[in-house]
Design a protein around this nucleic acid. Sequence first.
DNA 1: TTATATGCAAAACATTTGCACTTGA
DNA 2: TCAAGTGCAAATGTTTTGCATATAA
Lengths: 136, 136
Amino acid sequence: MIENIIEKKCIQKGLKMTDQRRVIARVLATSKDHPDAEELYNRTNKINSQISLATVYRTLKLFNENGILEKHEFRDGKSRYETIQKDHHDHLIDIETGKVIEFQNEEIEKLQERIASELGYDIIEHRLEIYAIKQK
Amino acid sequence: MIENIIEKKCIQKGLKMTDQRRVIARVLATSKDHPDAEELYNRTNKINSQISLATVYRTLKLFNENGILEKHEFRDGKSRYETIQKDHHDHLIDIETGKVIEFQNEEIEKLQERIASELGYDIIEHRLEIYAIKQK
DNA sequence: TTATATGCAAAACATTTGCACTTGA
DNA sequence: TCAAGTGCAAATGTTTTGCATATAA
């Protein structure tokens, strides 16, 4: 009985584990990029062709609502997903190749906290995306 | 002949000034919020009911491509527009009310430049959005 | 057993586009 | 005049949903 980190979280949350969810969880756990729904549909179907696109969408939504996945909307019109990591990071997107690079910067995090606090707010989440091109 | 700043920019860029574009430009120039296409359609139609939603979309795209408008995609599924200001700013979105607060922070800008540079990139644009709730 | 999940196809939603007609310069 | 802009309706692309059937617990 091979379990992955996502499946463990599902069980913790009391989510019913169907074959479809197990496969989607496995694909997500082993994806090191930021796939969209269609791409996940393609990847899961190589393992089990009984998974519909609708189920992929429903499962992504469920996992996102349960704090298992992060949903990103970079500027290409489709949502991309990533398993939630221990350490928060932001993204730099190469607008020529679409490549996504992750980075961390504690100082920026703190500055955001300070800005929100000065405006009388508590941060729920934030989004920092840098769209850039390779230096020539 | 009453002109606004947007209309001036259009003329500078050599864009043909139709009645529709003039009305849309006027509405944008006097909007202090971040309206979406449908909302702009409603506002322009109070002035001239001969403007179609398709033309609003086409004009927003045109203005955006010509550096007249900024297009934002906050997390509500529709694009919002704002005239480009002299000084760059980012946004804090009150997720309970939808209110958008603008803020500036030079330090964050510089940190981003440094991060991109260290990764070998030049920034084309960036997006920093803080989603927050009022402190209790 | 039974509430919940699924597949399928249709619907929803914001946005774009083809085409015939109109208009600004 | 005539290239460019417009209105309308149809098309698009992503995501959601209604409903009948299937399944985990």
